[in-house]
Simulated scan of single mutants.
Amino acid sequence: MKPFIVVPDGFDKSLFEELRKNSNLEVHPTSKVSQDELKALLPKVDGLIIRSATTINAELLALAPNLKIVIRAGEGTDNIDKTLCAEKGVKVANTPGANNNSAAEQAVALMMSCLRNIPFADKTMHEGKWEKNALTGLELWKKKVGIVGFGRIGQIVAKRISGFEPEIFFFDPVTEKCDIANSKRCLDLKEIFSECDIISIHTPLMPQTKGMINAELLGLMKKDAILINAARGGIVDEEALYTTLKDKKIRAAGFDVFAVEPLPADSKLKELSNLIMSPHVGASTEEAQFRVGEMAVHQINEFFMNKNLLNEVKGK
């Protein structure tokens, strides 16, 4: 019997058709199904290719006795219970690197939006106003930019903004060097939060980083400083963030990710005029979606046709 593959969260049409052309696999006819439809399909599923909309938890795994692999078309796997998958013999893989440039560009876009008040300028223009005097911004040129998490995405951000001649301060437990001129590794987050004009977060969400950016660190920031998070929700203590922005202790923040997504209707963050928000769209570019899909198609074919597991992800 052919392995049965389901792609529940949507997929580039051309890549989905390429996947279906594999005569050695049975692929569900559509590339997007509801959660109820997915639950009905799970008893016969051998492989899943998911994005962020599907959470692989105990409930779904209990319905999928034949499941052998889950591929996250993207990099973050916090929507997959990897420990339980390991207990059940289900392999987990992702598509590292495919989203990196898009995620980095989203961080830069939020950075510039905060510095130049672009969303507010646009809003008031559409309201028929001309609020020029109220929209004085700041330059990025020669600012001190702190990057928390200096892996692939953090380094891309540093490269993309290097033309603005910033001083780069970076914090990372592994990466020790930066090839960009005028850069410095910091061994203590307190140095970054007290020294930098702009701070951009690029760490994964894990037990060590959950709530890592807390009231103490936020309290060290300069009054005109800006905080950017296009990494993962939960890294920043949102209650502390709310208080910091409400009391105007920093200039602004730009967030693409939140502890609970979608953002709850009653979230206090919506009250803040100095918080620019986007709905976790860091990887939502046509180019990135094609790249993650291309990698996922290759990986599912390799796993079932050649017994080759690429980009396995382990841990919690």
Rank of each mutant, 00 (worst) to 15 (best):
R20A: 15
R20P: 00
R20L: 09
K21C: 05
K21R: 14
N22E: 15
N22W: 08
S23K: 15
S23Y: 03
S23Q: 15
S23T: 13
N24V: 03
N24E: 15
N24R: 15
N24F: 14
L25Q: 09
L25A: 07
E26V: 05
E26G: 00
E26R: 10
V27K: 04
V27I: 05
V27S: 11
V27N: 07
V27F: 05
H28L: 06
H28P: 00
P29S: 12
T30P: 02
K32M: 08
K32H: 03
K32P: 02
K32C: 02
K32V: 05
V33I: 14
S34Y: 04
Q35F: 13
Q35W: 01
L38I: 13
L38M: 12
L38V: 13
K39A: 15
A40N: 11
A40F: 04
L41Y: 04
L41Q: 00
L42A: 10
L42E: 13
L42D: 08
L42K: 01
L42T: 12
P43K: 08
K44G: 07
K44L: 04
D46E: 08
D46G: 01
L48V: 05
L48Y: 07
L48S: 09
I49H: 08
I50M: 03
R51V: 12
R51Q: 11
R51M: 13
S52Y: 09
S52R: 06
A53E: 14
A53D: 14
T54K: 10
T54Y: 07
T54Q: 12
T55H: 14
T55S: 15
T55Q: 13
N57H: 06
A58C: 01
A58T: 06
E59C: 04
E59Q: 13
L60Q: 08
L60H: 06
L61F: 10
L61M: 15
A62I: 01
A62W: 06
A62P: 00
L63K: 15
L63A: 04
L63D: 00
A64F: 10
A64M: 06
A64P: 11
P65Q: 02
P65M: 04
P65R: 02
N66H: 15
L67C: 03
K68I: 06
I69F: 07
V70R: 04
I71K: 10
R72A: 09
R72Y: 00
A73M: 01
A73E: 12
A73C: 10
G74F: 13
G74K: 12
G74E: 01
G74C: 11
G74W: 12
G74N: 10
E75M: 05
E75T: 14
G76H: 04
G76M: 04
G76W: 06
T77E: 02
T77W: 03
D78Y: 04
D78I: 03
D78A: 08
D78P: 11
N79A: 09
N79T: 09
I80Q: 07
D81A: 06
D81G: 01
K82D: 12
K82Q: 15
T83K: 14
L84N: 05
L84Y: 07
L84C: 01
C85F: 08
A86Y: 02
A86N: 13
A86V: 01
E87G: 00
K88R: 15
V90C: 04
K91Y: 13
K91I: 02
V92K: 02
A93C: 14
N94I: 04
N94Q: 03
N94M: 02
N94W: 03
N94Y: 05
T95S: 09
